[in-house]
Simulated assay, not measured.
Amino acid sequence: MQDVLIRPFRASDAPWLVMQHGLLYARDEGFDETFAPLVHSILTDFVAWHDPTRERGWIAERAGERLGSIFCVALDDKTAKLRLFLLMPQARGLGLGKRMLGTCMAFARSAGFTEMRLWTHESHEAACRLYRASGWHLLNSKHVHSFGVNLVEQSWKIQL
């Protein structure tokens, strides 16, 4: 994975990211058609309103092929939120997720945040193992019905 570039997100990446979230979450999690519009809304707001000194997105890319994404956005003055962490199936299990998470967390620290939070689902076992191994702590879990399926939502945090 040394040949993978982790580059800044560009607005032109948004359609690809919305499509991949919709396709992969439908295939792997059974999510319905309400999920991709949520991703679209998140990205539309990011493109229009993000503060580039404190908020960033990245795309992992190899030879022009996009392999994943990760975003850091502000929750408040001291807390950042990790969002839209996605790895394409062909890029999983190769250490790229760890690299991307490290990039995002290092940026959050350099931007002055003292804590990060994230929201995920219990079914994302590999991501949850990565969070735990990187020092994140599970805050809570709850059963929900979202995007047409029953899920266990999780909230995580880390002190930076």
Rank of each mutant, 00 (worst) to 15 (best):
A63F: 09
G30C: 07
D28F: 06
A36M: 03
F35K: 07
R62G: 15
E61N: 11
R54C: 13
V39R: 03
Q20R: 12
A60V: 11
V18F: 03
F46D: 06
F35G: 10
A26M: 05
A63N: 14
E55Y: 13
R27G: 02
M19N: 08
V39Y: 01
G30T: 07
R56T: 06
F35I: 09
V47H: 03
L23F: 03
I59R: 11
Y25D: 00
S41Y: 07
R54L: 13
L17D: 00
A60Y: 09
A36V: 02
E55C: 14
P52D: 07
R27W: 03
R27V: 06
Q20M: 12
T53F: 14
P52S: 10
V39P: 01
L24A: 08
R54P: 12
L43A: 04
E65N: 14
T53Y: 13
R56Q: 15
G22F: 06
L17M: 10
H21F: 09
G22V: 06
H21L: 02
A48T: 08
I59Y: 12
L23Y: 07
H21W: 00
P15I: 02
P52Y: 08
Y25T: 10
R56I: 10
L43D: 05
G22N: 08
Y25I: 00
F31V: 02
G57Q: 05
A48W: 03
L38H: 08
R54D: 12
